[in-house]
Amino acid sequence: MTGSVFQEWINRNLDIPGVLGFGIYTPDKGGFIASCVHTFSAEALENAWRCVAETIPVMQLNRFPTARFRFVYDQAVVHCERRRDGTCLGVFAVKGHQFEQDELYRLLGEFHSL
């Protein structure tokens, strides 16, 4: 699976209401981020996504599941989903937004089927 497939998929989903940004982390330690709002600078988003990526091996070290996890802040949630091949998706979303009920699980399903 090449990163471009994920990138194209994310580019098609940049306009979903409630989504602030995306991050993809691939097993070869590559990845990319995509910001959906101007308040999420690429630099800050990259820093945040690096923190998420660094959490995965520490979770593994502790023998925690890594298939699905999320960081909850009082204004946003970072939903993370990891495929069996190790590719990890992060969706930065407005906390409590309708997106979390409707679109999130569609996105996660699509991510697994890519």
């Binding site: 800050a44 890594t66 298939a67 009082d74 946003a76």
Partner: peptide, 17 residues
């Protein structure tokens, strides 16, 4: 993680196995 992003204070971290 939150530095530079307008996401507020950290509340919790959840793992779903």
């Amino acid at each position: 993680l939150s530095q530079g992003l307008p996401i507020g204070h950290f509340e919790r971290f959840e793992i779903f196995g």
